[in-house]
């Protein structure tokens, strides 16, 4: 009886108080792939003396590095939540170092800098895994 009254008076039409929808899919692999691009570009840069080639390499490295920074930023402010600080106490410092390292890679053609960025992205990946990232943010069990 009560239930049928509720069903009768309940609105049938939904109005949306629209917000952007965070898709909830996060994976540091995105940042890792762009960081690997930077690494390879630095390698190729060193192996080629051609000025035009080197100019292009620098430009592309700049672009890829921006993407690394973007993907790291999205993880930092969209995926990670305050409660994750318990599992990863150095989270903020880690992101600070990693995004600073991106800036360093932009300005550098030293392979060691690009390698250091890969390591920092891997640390972010470990933090993502430590907070249950793979099961919470990827669809149907990816990555395998």
């Amino acid at each position: 009886m009560f239930r049928s009254v509720i069903a009768t008076i309940a609105p049938k039409t939904v109005v949306r108080a629209h917000c952007d929808l965070p898709c909830g899919v996060y994976d540091p692999e995105q940042a890792r792939i762009e960081a690997e691009s930077c690494y390879r570009i630095v390698e190729k840069y060193a192996a080629n003396e051609d000025t035009a080639y080197r100019t292009r390499a620098i430009a592309i490295k700049e672009e890829r590095a921006d993407l690394v920074k973007h993907h790291l930023d999205v993880l930092w402010h969209d995926y990670f939540k305050p409660e994750h600080l318990e599992a990863v106490p150095n989270l903020h410092d880690l992101f600070w170092q990693a995004t600073k390292q991106v800036s360093k890679v932009k300005a550098s053609t030293d392979l060691a800098d690009a390698k250091r960025l890969l390591d920092l992205v891997d640390e972010v990946d470990a933090a993502w895994k430590a907070t249950g990232g793979p099961s919470k943010t990827r669809v149907a069990g990816r990555p395998g």
Binding site: I9, A10, P11, K12, T13, V14, V15, R16, A17, H18, C19
Partner: peptide, 23 residues
């Protein structure tokens, strides 16, 4: 023909109007 009654989805009208409100 209305609608005369609606329910709200999503949160852009918080804090005054919340998701699930009947209006």
């Amino acid at each position: 023909r209305g609608p005369w009654r609606v329910t709200v989805a999503e949160g852009s009208m918080l804090p005054d109007i919340a998701p699930g409100d009947w209006l």
